[in-house]
Each structure stands twice: as C-alpha cells, then as structure tokens.
C-alpha cells in the first residue's frame, strides 16, 4: 500500500517525470536495452543537462520526451501528457504545443529550401496560427536570437551556429513548455557553442521554457543548474549547482554531486569511489542512526582485526571524493 501511494505521488509536482522507464530496440535478432529503468524528475523552469557515455541512452530518452518514440515500459509524463498513452492526435498536439526540439546536426534541423523566417514560421503554420501572426512572431523570435538581419537567408547561407540558433527559434515557435536539445553544440566550436548556449539560456530565462540538454560538452554541462549523468540506461548521479555569496559580497558557484537512489532502491556508485575503496561485487551495509555505511567485504580474517582502509593511488586521488554527509542528507530531504 505504501508503495502504491509512493508511486502515485512520485514526481507529482515535476513537469517531466520518468519512472522506471524502459526502452528496448529490436533489430532483426538483436535486442538493445537502451533504457533499463530510468528515473528522472525535472521541475518547471529548470535548465538541466544530461550527460553520459555513448550508448548510455541519452538520445533515446530525448526521443521519448519529444514524442518521437514510445517507451517499452515504465512511466513518462510531460506536463499533463502521459507519453505511454498518447493517441496519434495527442502525439501531434503534444509536439505542436508542449515540446520543441533541436538536433545535433545543423543540416537536420532546418528545411534547406526555406528561409530562416519561413523555417521558424513552419511549426506555427502546422499549429494553425494565422499568417500575419506567424510572420510577426517569427521575426520577433529571430530578432531575440540576434538573427533579425538574416531572417530571409536560407540555411545554406548561414553559419553552423546561426543555423542552430534558427533551429532554437523553430523549436520555440509555438511557445513550448519544454525545449529538448540533443548535443546542440556538438558540431560547433567553443565560441559558437557559447552563442548557442546563450540562446538556450535566454529561452529558459526570458520565456520560462524548461530546457533539457543532452551534451558531452563540459562547458555546457557546467553552466546549467543541474547535470544528470546516465549510465547503462539508468540515472547514475547528478550534480547540483548553486551560487553562494560570502560575507564580503563575493559570489561563487558551489557544485555538489549526488548519487541517485532509484525507485527500486538501487544505487550506482561512481567507479572512482569503488576503486578507491576496493569495492567488489559484494559490500557490507551498516545502518546507522543517521547514515548508511558501505564497507568493502574484508578478505578472510587473519587476525580478527577490523578492515583497514586501502591507501589511494595517484589516480584514485584524482577521483571524485565521496559526498559530504550533510549534502547527502539535504538531497534526501529534497526528495
């Protein structure tokens, strides 16, 4: 009963809820488990980054959230839309009203034979917006993205960064609640990538759009409020950033890394932690009044003494340190 109540309430206040999400692809006789019970909550107005190795399931997650793909099992909700129960008409309305999408490949985001303004106006046309409104709003969006002067140029006449900014304009055309971006700066240099990221941040701040970015770019990942790491189709850890101001008025960004406990109670420990403590396939848990102790299983006792901590190597010294106890407590409270 408690579990059912928990399930009903999980992520109730979040805009995006992924609960034990599973996606299995089958190509001929080969099965690929892209998502293996992924949990994710994103609040309205947040701007988060999703990072992970290739094949970890980032793009699959974004395809599901954009309504282009259907999960195999689990629960996925964006706003009031249950992504597992969408009819064809619902899916169309969802794509028109709720999400905007930016792909990594600049050429894939825009129709090559339409100008920038026409590309931005296209989603509005599909949404049934009047012609005059479409034209005005497309100009406004491009102007806000710094592309007002290039509204009549076709994609081939724009740089990669400009194309991506136009793509952001296209994604924002129908004022979606969520903007999903899959490696939007992946094909761009650092300076151009910064311009694109600025445009995304602008969308988040000016229009209140929730932005979810899949990226490998550490610069991008470091500039969002929260970075969620995915490994093997599950959320592994996340880094939350906040700005602190000291007594002298100076500000600094504080990043705290959290391990995520999924709905089944599973916890993924970073490799660095495991190697630093020599954690193998079995660990010993000790429940304390205010924390949980995870201990490596000791080798067969020779003298009956308590296990000694191993000395970290140079490589292990650079690995992330275990999170501070107060931060972990805060994270649990937030859940």
């Amino acid at each position: 009963m408690t579990t059912l109540t928990e399930r009903a309430e999980y992520g109730r206040s979040a805009l995006i809820v992924c609960d034990n999400l599973v996606r299995i692809f089958q190509v001929e006789n080969i099965e690929v488990l892209a998502l293996q019970g992924l949990d994710l909550l994103v609040d309205e107005g947040e701007m988060i980054a999703i990072v992970g190795a290739s094949g970890s399931g980032k793009s699959t997650l974004l395809s599901i959230l954009s309504g282009l793909d259907t999960p195999t099992a689990g629960r996925a909700r964006v706003g009031s839309w249950d992504l597992l129960q969408l009819s064809a008409a619902d899916r169309l309305a969802y794509r028109r009203e709720t999400v905007g999408f930016v792909w990594q490949q600049t050429a894939r985001n825009l129709l090559p034979y339409l100008s920038a303004a026409e590309n931005v106006a296209l989603p509005m046309a599909y949404a049934g917006v009047r012609a005059r409104t479409r034209t005005r709003r497309a100009r406004d969006i491009l102007h806000s993205l710094g592309l007002g002067a290039k509204a009549d140029r076709r994609p081939g006449e724009l740089s990669g960064g400009e194309q991506q900014r136009v793509a952001i304009g296209v994604a924002l055309a129908n004022r979606p609640q969520v903007l999903l971006a899959d490696e939007p700066t992946g094909e761009l240099d650092a300076r151009t990538g910064e311009e694109v990221f600025t445009a995304l941040r602008s969308a988040n701040e000016n229009f209140g759009t929730t932005v979810v970015i899949v990226t490998h770019d550490a610069e991008v990942a470091g500039q969002v409020q929260r970075t969620v790491a995915i490994r093997d189709g599950r959320t592994a850890s996340e880094v939350a950033r906040r700005t602190e101001t000291n007594e002298h008025g100076a500000t600094r960004v504080v990043a705290e890394e959290f391990a995520l406990l999924d709905r089944a109670g599973r916890l993924q420990l970073p490799n660095g932690y495991r190697s630093a403590l020599g954690l193998g396939s079995r660990v010993r848990l000790e429940l304390e009044p205010d924390h949980l102790g995870v201990w490596p299983v000791a080798p067969p006792p020779e003298s009956g003494s308590a296990p000694a901590a191993a000395s970290p190597t140079a490589a292990e010294a650079e690995a992330p340190r275990p999170p501070a106890r107060p931060a972990a407590r805060r994270a649990r409270r937030a859940r």
Binding site: S66, V170, N174
Partner: peptide, 10 residues
C-alpha cells in the same frame, strides 16, 4: 520526418 517533428500531421 523533420516536418513531423515540427508538428505536421500525416
């Protein structure tokens, strides 16, 4: 595919 993603119905 792009048009579909941008909200075009079939």
């Amino acid at each position: 595919q792009l048009e579909r993603a941008r909200g075009a119905s079939f």
